[in-house]
Simulated assay, not measured.
Amino acid sequence: MSTAPGSAPALSVLDLVPVRTGQTSAQAVTASLGLAARADELGFRRYWFAEHHNMPAVASTTPPVLIAAAAARTSRIRVGSGGVMLPNHSPLVVAEQFAALEALAPGRIDLGIGRAPGSDPVITQLLRQSGTTSDVDRFPDHISDIMGLVAAEGATVRFTSGGTYDVHATPSATTVPEVWLLGSSDYSAQLAASFGLPYVFANHFSGEGLERALELYRTQFRPTEANPAPRTFLTVNVLASPTAEEAEARSLPYQRMMARMRTNMPLAANETVEAALEGAADFDGLAQSIMASARSKWFVGTGSSVAGQLRDFATRWDVDEVMVSPIAGAYEDEPMDAATGRLQTLELIAAAL
């Protein structure tokens, strides 16, 4: 679906459940669930949790658990995964989890599936100790398995020796979670097109390859009954504050986190804005260059300026929805169990659009 020039796209939220210095996991999760409830009130279309492991600044390790909690605290917004990193899990377990979620919140569950590990090689090895589940080459087969398992008719296992065995993710499904394929490469775009699935390009990572991925997806899309035409939206990092100066200051903790990741520096919980400002002279030229490059791809400013960028972005790429990852850092005196800067970001953008 396209967006008319200047019109407002629908907005959704991607949440990594960020953890700041001094904050507990319980406080970070409480803050994110409060943000999900407010996004529901503000009219956002969907709220997705990412899957990342063993990261000091990220608490979104188990999307299904967070989705269940968010679904219980909301009434309208779609909730889902952005995404489940499928090679880390058994397709049957994923199907059962999301069939159960669909039963908890019928018509509101999205199953976003990705192929990346979501962590470092050590954690990836620990996650993938279940034999063929970790076979990345079987990723397309596992997607097919999940789609069959969550359907009301279930899936059929055919034995090489003859005979069949019926398998259902849940005993009596009346609705199914909506499956989305996620990625940041030509491969993911072409796979989504071949399955006739909706597709999300992970533009918030770097944005490289976006134009080609969308072209491949749209031109190679194979219509299905559920999806007669290609459906896609894009992700972007955003930050809105009452003033441009505050927005830039709140972006610094995330800029510095990106520099640490890209230069293999030790990772830590997100700095406060004050700590990030005080440490400005600590980083060398390479780190500063990485920070500047990351910042150039983000939408940072006042609510009206960011809303304008989102409109232009949606029009340029012909999408009617944009999923925002709110990257606002926190000041030291802000409550640990609330996402003050991220909440402000969503409220200001929603009001401006």
Rank of each mutant, 00 (worst) to 15 (best):
S184E: 11
R138T: 12
L127K: 00
A155G: 07
T156M: 10
D135G: 07
V136I: 14
W180H: 06
T164L: 05
V167Q: 05
G162V: 07
G163F: 03
V176Y: 00
A155C: 00
V157G: 00
F195A: 09
L149V: 03
E178I: 04
A189L: 13
T175V: 00
H142D: 15
H168Y: 06
F201T: 13
E178P: 00
S144R: 15
H168N: 09
Q129V: 14
A202C: 11
A169N: 05
L126E: 12
F201K: 10
A193R: 12
T170Q: 12
P171F: 00
F195N: 09
T174F: 01
S194I: 00
S188D: 06
S194C: 02
I146C: 03
S206I: 01
S194Q: 13
S172D: 15
E153W: 00
G131N: 07
S188M: 07
D186T: 12
Q125M: 07
A173I: 03
G162W: 05
A173C: 05
Q125V: 05
L197D: 08
L197E: 09
L127D: 01
Y165M: 10
Y165C: 10
L182V: 11
L126T: 10
T164F: 01
L182P: 00
V136L: 08
P171T: 06
A193E: 06
V200T: 15
D135Q: 10
Y199F: 15
T174W: 04
V200F: 07
L149G: 03
G154N: 03
I146S: 01
T132V: 12
G131D: 09
S206Q: 13
S172Y: 12
Y187Q: 10
A192T: 08
R128T: 14
T170D: 10
G131C: 11
G183F: 03
T133L: 08
F159C: 02
S188P: 00
S161E: 14
I143S: 02
F201W: 12
L181P: 00
P177A: 08
I146V: 09
Q125P: 01
G196F: 07
V150H: 04
L191M: 11
S130K: 09
F201N: 13
H142G: 01
S206D: 15
N203A: 12
H168G: 02
V176T: 14
T160N: 13
W180C: 06
L191N: 02
G154K: 03
F205I: 15
L127R: 02
A169T: 03
S188L: 08
S130R: 13
G196E: 08
T156A: 07
D141S: 10
D186V: 11
D135I: 06
G196T: 08
D135M: 05
T133Q: 12
H168M: 06
G154M: 05
E153A: 14
H204A: 11
D145C: 02
L149S: 02
D137L: 13
S194D: 10
V167I: 14
M147P: 02
Q129C: 13
S134T: 05
M147R: 15
V200R: 02
G207R: 09
S144N: 11
V150I: 15
L191C: 04
W180I: 10
G162K: 07
S188A: 15
I146A: 02
G131A: 13
Q125D: 13
L197T: 04
P171C: 03
A173Q: 12
G163A: 07
A192S: 14
S172R: 15
V200K: 03
A151D: 14
F159S: 09
A152E: 14
L127S: 03
F195P: 07
I146F: 01
